[in-house]
């Protein structure tokens, strides 16, 4: 990562709305994410968390408002390929390509999008597979791996594009508790490396540990943005208090 002295935020969102027909999925959302900052988005189901982070790499284009990433205004004129080189994403269901081996999953985009040579891409992929702890699974196919291993591959695959921002859309929601520990520890490690991260999750302990700030959403609106210690001890709003009560009961 190059050292940036500028205070320009990595992500800047102003008055952003997203509609699905009549339904308002995002309602005039404003927030900034600084370089290297870790944001965790919390909120009940249907509050717009997933929609929010999907607008950040334009998998769901926003309808109103402005989105700026790394100083660039992102709209329908933006080359989606450039944008997605900059912003990586990991999904709840991994979305690995079942017809390709683990290694091929990782090198496809670097070769096709960044036009790396196979040797270069393979070296890169092996480095990230090492980092996510599954270097010896490179030649297996996704179906031969456990859920936790598959999610590690998905993370490695996204990292191979060397993005400046990583988006995680409930990466541990489909995993058993043991696998969650593994994936969370990888995300801890990534966080330490200083990559800008926006993560939708229900992992409270993880959120508390790594988040620089918590964005709490309800009904398409951002209800509050606070550091985790404040959020988990003295949330500003009743809505957040209710949510925490519900979550902590289990």
């Amino acid at each position: 990562m190059q050292h940036e002295t500028t205070d320009l935020p990595m992500i800047s969102v102003r008055g952003m709305s997203k509609l699905f027909g009549e339904f308002v999925a995002l309602d005039r959302v404003d927030f900034d994410v600084s370089r290297g900052e870790k944001i965790v988005v919390l909120g009940p189901s249907g509050s717009g968390k997933s929609t929010l982070i999907r607008t950040l790499n334009r998998i769901e284009p926003h309808d109103i408002g402005t989105l700026t990433i790394n100083g660039k205004l992102i709209n329908e004129k933006t080359d989606p390929i450039q944008l997605r080189c900059m912003v990586g994403m990991v999904f709840q269901n991994y979305n690995l390509f079942p017809h390709l081996s683990v290694l091929e999953n990782c090198i496809l985009a670097p070769m096709r999008v960044k036009h790396m040579s196979r040797i270069e891409a393979t070296a890169l992929a092996r480095r990230y597979l090492e980092q996510v702890g599954i270097p010896d699974q490179a030649d297996k196919y996704p179906i031969q791996l456990s859920g936790g291993q598959q999610q590690r591959v998905a993370i490695a695959r996204a990292l191979c594009m060397q993005p400046q921002v990583m988006l995680f859309d409930e990466p541990t929601a489909a995993l058993d508790p043991e696998a969650i520990v593994g994936v969370v520890s990888i995300m801890d490690e990534l966080a330490e490396q200083g990559i800008t991260t926006v993560c939708v999750t229900h992992e409270m302990a993880f959120s508390r540990r790594i988040a620089d700030r918590i964005i709490f959403m309800d009904q398409g609106k951002i209800v509050e943005i606070t550091p985790p210690e404040t959020f988990f001890t003295t949330p500003k709003t009743d809505r957040a208090q209710n949510f925490l009560n519900q979550m902590l009961r289990y």
Binding site: N57, I59, P80, I81, Q82, L83, R84, C85, G88, M89, F91, N93, Y94, N95, L96, F97, P98, H99, L108, A109, R112, V113, A154, R157, A158, M161
Partner: peptide, 29 residues
């Protein structure tokens, strides 16, 4: 799975690559 297209486009693959490298090989089988 529609997630295949989503995953592939999140990696920055072009429409052409999404079809030829990801969707067609699976649909073909």
């Amino acid at each position: 799975d529609p997630g295949q297209e989503l995953g592939a486009s999140a990696l920055g693959l072009s429409r052409r690559d999404i079809y030829w490298r990801v969707i067609f090989p699976q649909a073909f089988r």
